[in-house]
Nucleic acid binder design. Structure first.
Length: 506
RNA sequence: CGGGCCGUAGCGCAGUCUGGCUAGCGCGCUUCGUUCGGGACGAAGAGGUCGGUGGUUCAAAUCCACUCGGCCCGACCA
């Protein structure tokens, strides 16, 4: 109390958003930088959130007919070379294994030995190695479709990294499917995009825009790339997931061929789709505040923590017993299809310090139990999302707990939706567009801009120009056009079919 | 790969320009005491190859050379 702390996290979002982001991660003990450049250590609290994401996504994949499998970490260099656009996109960021062992050097150091005949690439994505495998599996139309997902790590040698948002190694899932027809593959591509959007909104409480990428932003080797785009609290866009219709590009380069009902040999149609630990970054930047992380109940490792408050030794045993029985009662309840996760924090810490540690970790509900609560059969409870503190009868608290968690979940989504709506504008002139995306203070840019919905005629020149001038990109061409149909391109004056989403992005 | 900055305790830093007592400070950590319902206070402790190698010197965290690593700005980023 003596310490005049206004917020648990310094700096605040308004003061320095990127630094705030780093401090939230640190304070919540989600992850830290490792000794390996660009690679992070995901700590237990962060990994538990990832496990919850995995569990939920995995169930959705299974429910849409997919099964899991695992493919190698290493890809022969020649495989990557097969697809021209793919090489172009990934060659610059591949880790390459060239030797198979180490030998003692003259000064006691180890030097690589046993050069490989063909270097191996550490997978940046697995289209080529999985495609090569599928080529062996597919003979007949009866072998199709193949609907497989893998949970894996991938490596992309990024120049500049940020925890969760862009790391050299990251965890993800990648679905790779093979179909007999283009239509079926296109349906699959959009089905999985819907799965991602459903997960983002209902589990992460993060509203997203589903859309199609422009030619310039498309996945290397894809015919069509679809994405979900979310708005972070600095109003920048984050691509939260992608689903690609690969056409026959990889089927041709990997030789995935089958005989159709008429006995004709033809190339198959493939898709791939993925989301990564970047979603944790998205969750942080969507919901957290100046007191730290806020985890949506659906993803929270603990839904609720019980903090025993021991004021004197006389009541200690009674408080402890009360906490234990409350925990047992809560643990028997269910929320969102799983038992409510409840923990008692019995650490020998001061009350304030202990409470703040859970605020910073973003636990949805905190309960403090002392002699007063024991005496009156009540609980003192605080919501992380609103900060609201209440004294409730124990019976009422327990009976309404699942609903309270859902209220928090709903509130987070509603809050994020309102934020996005408040920072989304329709712009109808190039001047207004440039004004919207230009900071008032160029030396120390304030948080400005947001999502701009504007007409664009498909001109790659205009797309390149705004990227150069403003660092603004077309995030996507929305699948659901709520921007009232056709109009005029604000850059060229040519006709435009619909508005696109423009924003600065991560 | 170009331009700039920085490596001193777990973290954040001072000291380097102008070489000189036993290398300091804050936070954190350990122990004890008093405290405890929203981030306590006091006392006593532990913790350092000053990024590395070589050189100059009676003497190097400090000066010189080389080298390794990191950060920022560019370029790059499904």
């Amino acid at each position: 109390m003596n310490k005049a702390v206004k917020t648990a996290i310094t700096p605040t979002r308004a003061e320095n958003y990127p630094e705030w982001y780093q401090q939230v991660i640190k304070a919540a003990e989600l992850a830290e930088n490792s000794d390996v450049r660009g690679c992070m250590v995901i700590k237990p609290w962060g990994y538990a959130i990832w496990e919850n994401m995995q569990r939920s996504l995995d169930a959705k994949f299974k429910a849409t007919g997919h099964v899991n499998a695992y493919f190698p970490l290493f890809i022969p260099k020649s495989y990557i070379e097969k697809e021209a656009a793919h090489v172009e996109g990934f060659a610059k960021e591949c880790a390459v294994v060239t030797h198979s062992r180490l030998e003692a050097g003259p000064d006691g150091s180890l030097i690589p030995a046993g050069p490989l005949d063909e270097p191996l690439i550490v997978r940046p994505t697995s289209e080529t190695i999985i495609g090569a495998t599928y080529a062996k599996w597919v003979r007949s139309y009866r072998d199709l479709p193949i609907l497989i997902n893998q949970w894996a790590n991938v490596v992309r040698w990024e120049m500049r990294t940020r925890l969760f948002l862009r790391t050299a190694e990251f965890l993800w899932q990648e679905g790779h499917t093979v179909h007999a027809t283009a239509e079926e593959a296109q349906e699959e591509t959009l089905r999985m995009l819907d799965v991602y959007a459903d997960f983002a909104e209902n589990q992460m409480a993060m509203p997203v825009i589903k859309g199609r990428k422009t030619d310039g932003e498309r996945f290397p080797g894809a015919v069509d790339t679809f994405c979900i785009e979310a708005m972070m609290q600095d109003r920048k866009a984050l691509q939260a997931g992608t689903s690609h219709f690969l056409g026959q590009n990889f089927a041709k380069s990997c030789n995935i061929e089958f005989q159709n009902e008429n006995g004709q040999l033809q190339h198959a149609w493939t898709t791939s789709w993925g989301v990564s630990t970047r979603l944790i970054g998205a969750m942080i930047m969507t919901h957290s505040d100046d007191d730290g992380l806020i985890v949506p109940p659906q993803l929270a490792p603990h839904h609720i923590v019980i903090l025993p408050v021991h004021r004197d030794e006389a009541s200690r045993a009674a408080v402890q017993t009360y906490c234990e029985s409350l925990r047992a009662e809560i643990a028997a309840l269910h929320y969102a299809g799983r038992p409510i996760e409840v923990a008692i924090d019995g650490r020998e810490l001061r009350g304030g310090e202990k409470a703040w540690s859970w605020v910073k970790k973003g636990v949805p509900l905190r309960v403090e139990i002392g002699a007063r609560e024991v005496a009156s059969e009540s609980v003192f409870t605080a919501r992380r999302d609103t900060g609201e503190k209440r004294n409730l009868s124990r019976g009422h608290f327990v009976a309404t707990l699942p609903q309270t968690l859902q209220d928090i979940q709903d509130n987070l989504l509603a809050r994020a939706q309102a934020f996005r709506a408040a920072n989304t504008v329709e712009l109808d002139s190039k001047d207004a567009f440039y004004a919207y995306f230009t900071p008032e203070n160029k030396a120390k840019p304030e948080i400005h801009g947001g999502f701009a919905l504007a007409h664009w005629d498909g001109s790659a020149e205009a797309e390149a120009q705004i990227k150069k001038d403003l660092n603004v990109t077309i995030r996507c061409i929305p699948l659901e056009d709520n921007g009232n149909g056709a109009g005029t391109c604000i850059f060229t004056g040519n006709p435009s079919k619909q508005r696109c989403v423009f924003a600065k992005s991560y």
